[in-house]
Design a protein around this nucleic acid. Structure first.
Lengths: 110, 110
DNA sequence: TGCAAGTATGTCTGATGTGACATATACTCC
DNA sequence: GGAGTATATGTCACATCAGACATACTTGCA
């Protein structure tokens, strides 16, 4: 994990461990955070792939640039509801969400 | 769709069409509702499979029986955050969520 | 260097979600 | 029929999340 990314997560209120990430969270909490991080990353990826600014996305969503920034940062004040709605607005489907949640790397635990 | 189930959804605030379900919703809204309904159904399924009452699940979650009932009814006052947390508490994983979101039926549109 | 565009962060007010409780309904079993 | 258990529904007070705004930071370019 890149250092700046890690700092950002910590500022956002997450506790980020070094190797065994997310230490200090219960398994359930860890899974929830995982999902949220995956959704947030996907929002950013889709936006960039579409060549849109956060402001443009915000307009599509009827939201604001700052909120889009917070979505992508997985800020603790953004709900998964909002992340899902954003993803769908950016052309994603439930199937795409599913793909996000399935680990692609083989030979490593979960 | 069973009639009683449909009535329940309508009371919960969803607009449910007959054949082409979810008419009147934008594609994005429809996708969001789909996800929520899938999560809600999964919560019920897992609870029943574990042989737990809503009250027992509520205690595990630090919530109340009425809220669990609303989760399973996909009430509009329950967030996907809560549904995800409930699922994970009931032993589900992000991978299980992914499976929920992938349509299993072939030969029919989405 | 300065400027401009994009992004990040802090905070406000109003909207929505939350657990809790009361109560209604449904289903057994006696 | 009534009692007991499970689930559903309506409502509260409080917590959390929403968009909006101001403002700071970052990046690229003249």
């Amino acid at each position: 994990m890149r250092v700046d990314r890690r700092r950002k997560l910590e500022r956002a209120g997450w506790v980020v461990g070094e190797a065994g990430d997310f230490l200090g969270l219960s398994p359930e909490e860890r899974q929830f955070v995982e999902v949220k991080l995956a959704l947030a990353a996907s929002v950013r990826q889709r936006r960039e792939r579409l060549g849109l600014t956060q402001l443009q996305v915000a307009e599509r969503l009827g939201s604001s640039q700052s909120r889009v920034a917070k979505m992508e940062a997985a800020d603790r004040t953004v709900s998964t509801d909002l992340l899902l709605k954003a993803l769908f607005q950016l052309g994603g489907s439930p199937r795409d969400v599913a793909k996000l949640l399935i680990p692609k790397i083989r030979g490593r635990a979960a």
